[in-house]
Computed example of a mutant assay.
Amino acid sequence: MRKLDRRALVAGSLGALVLPGFLHAQSANERVRFALDWVWQGNHSIWTYGAEQGVFVREKIDLSIERGYGSADNLNKLASGALDIAFVDPNLLPKFNSENPSVQMQAVCVMYDAAPSAITFLKDSGIKTVKDLEGKRLAVTETDASWPLFRVVCQLNGVDLDKIKVVNVSPQLRDSLVIQKRVDAALGFFVTSVINMVSAGVPRDDIAYIKYNDTGLELYSLSLVCRKDYAARNPAAVSGFVRGTVQATRAMLASRRAAVESLIKRDQLLKLDVEMLRNDLMIDGALLTPWTREHGLSTVDRARFERTAAQVAKAFNLAVIPKMEDVYTDRFLPPEAERRLV
């Protein structure tokens, strides 16, 4: 029998002890399946640019990003386990959680301090207030968050929804129906509707919109959302993804053109100038509000959050008005100083 070299024996023993741990460290990146709220658009460049710059890899996140089909669809996919984290309107969570007690959702980072949800129309429609929609035709997409939240807007403004002719269409058709005057107005994000109409040749000065936040519904908006049990089982994945998102947001703000160029690689039919304009509109109208500039990303005011939650709960006839901690947690956020964007 051949006598083993002592150094080889020691090396082999260390390999048996160290190699499994080494392999674990090498493969320790947390897998996160993430979906956006909708088709690829300029404001989604936060994640495409962050991925391109290696932000998420540095946070040990193995990230996959896919386009979305609306907040409601994202919630269903989170519930089924088809997604881990998604870009979702948090105002839908109280209702979803009340109807799905075994699959509870929570927001872990509020990305938009103000909602881009709006009613968009042509100025010659005669619409000036929400009340003017009575007797008009309104294009909606029932799976989009703007539709159920519109019910809250109606309640706050004394609008009889039964007096509005609601036309349920795919989101791709909403704005074109307004242009063709087959409907009088459409629900959706103003940044999307305005750009769609301008791209179709409508003069910008002919387009108007009413933001939900200007109707008495002071909404927080799109957030990173996951199942509560997923977060409990995967705290490193959630906190790593949130940290990466904050860093990616800062990187996008510092290099807006490069960020949008990274997005266009995902869909080369997109136009750079259009998506840069869309991104700028979202930054100015929803992301970098005066509050966010002062306090940082996802610094949520409890009084405002619970006031809005009560308005939404009343509209949906929920038995319990949720507290902030029922649907939002700051547990996975980095310190406030690290969330400053400017």
Rank of each mutant, 00 (worst) to 15 (best):
D273C: 03
E134L: 06
I127H: 02
L272I: 12
R151Q: 15
M324E: 04
L173N: 15
L281D: 09
R278C: 04
I85S: 01
K271W: 03
D5E: 13
L318D: 10
A310C: 07
G54F: 04
L133V: 01
D113E: 12
A51N: 11
V57L: 12
M324Y: 02
I164P: 05
R204F: 09
V110E: 02
I164C: 05
L253Q: 01
I46H: 09
P235E: 05
P203H: 10
A145T: 13
I85Y: 00
V342Q: 11
S45T: 11
L133C: 00
V327S: 12
D229A: 01
A35S: 08
D144K: 09
H295G: 02
A309K: 02
R182Y: 05
D184T: 02
G70V: 12
L224W: 06
P148I: 10
Y112M: 15
A72N: 15
D330I: 11
V260G: 00
V108R: 02
S117T: 10
N234F: 06
G42D: 12
V191L: 09
D124M: 02
R250S: 11
A200R: 13
M197P: 07
R182C: 03
Q53I: 10
S102W: 11
E261V: 14
I195F: 08
V153P: 03
A145S: 15
K95G: 06
W38F: 13
N213S: 13
V198Y: 10
F316L: 07
L297W: 03
R304M: 09
L161K: 11
L92R: 03
T192H: 13
K165N: 14
A254I: 01
V242K: 08
V183R: 05
R278L: 08
V300C: 01
I65H: 01
D113L: 04
V88I: 14
R2H: 10
N157C: 03
L133Q: 00
R302F: 09
R151H: 15
V140N: 01
N29F: 13
G81I: 04
P101C: 06
V320A: 06
L173Y: 15
F22V: 13
L217A: 00
D267N: 14
